[in-house]
């Protein structure tokens, strides 16, 4: 029902349209439309050509230039950074080498000092040891005398205590013989 009504109405529309004709085909206003189209086209053309397009083109070119410059600057900075990093690394390497050298030299110095100190200490020790040995010899000699003295005294006293005649000379000879013995 709806579709049939639509078709009927559309047929009538088409009929009316054919009767009235398309406004597009009415030649009475062709001149008017062409004239105003020409005015519009000329207006837009000159506005675009003289103002808008050079300006927009200029803006785009400036932007492109700025971007290229910025990229170049960034590239330059990047290279500078790389150079700085290399310099830093070089400095680090040379500083390490320097430090190694200093350590080696210091080690050698210390070794020399150490050797000297050891030699000095050795000398002192041997001097002390000799001195000690001398003193020990003295003490030992002193002790020998004291022992023979004590032995003579003791022997004299023992002989006297046992009721013998203590003859100092024979006791001394006997003790000396024993001590040697």
């Amino acid at each position: 029902m709806a579709t049939t009504t639509t078709t009927e109405a559309a047929t009538e529309v088409a009929h009316e349209g054919a009767k009235a004709g398309m406004p597009q085909l009415d030649p009475t206003h062709f001149a008017n439309q062409i004239f105003w189209l020409a005015v519009t086209l000329v207006l837009i053309f000159f506005v675009l050509k003289l103002v808008a397009l050079p300006r927009i083109g200029g803006t785009l070119a400036t932007r492109r230039g700025t971007i290229i410059n910025d990229l170049a600057a960034a590239e330059e900075l990047k290279q500078k950074v790389a150079a700085a990093e290399n310099a830093y690394n070089d400095a680090l390497v040379s500083a390490r080498a320097e430090a190694g050298k200093i350590v080696t030299a210091a080690k050698a110095d210390i070794q020399l000092d150490l050797n000297a100190a050891i030699a000095k200490a050795d000398a002192e020790i041997s001097a002390k040891a000799e001195e000690s040995a001398g003193r020990i010899g003295e003490i030992r000699a002193g002790a020998q005398d004291a022992i023979s003295e004590v032995a003579k005294d003791t022997a004299g006293e023992l002989v006297a205590a046992l009721g013998g005649q203590s003859d100092a000379a024979s006791i001394t000879a006997a003790v000396n013989a024993r001590l040697k013995g």
């Binding site: 001149a31 008017n32 439309q33 105003w36 005015v39 519009t40 837009i44 506005v47």
Partner: peptide, 22 residues
């Protein structure tokens, strides 16, 4: 009547297009 110079509705919308472009 519509002369070649008459301002019509077509004129208005063409010039509006030009104004939008500007």
């Amino acid at each position: 009547p519509i002369h070649w110079y008459t301002i019509t509705n077509a004129t208005v919308w063409l010039l509006l297009a030009a104004i939008c472009v500007i």
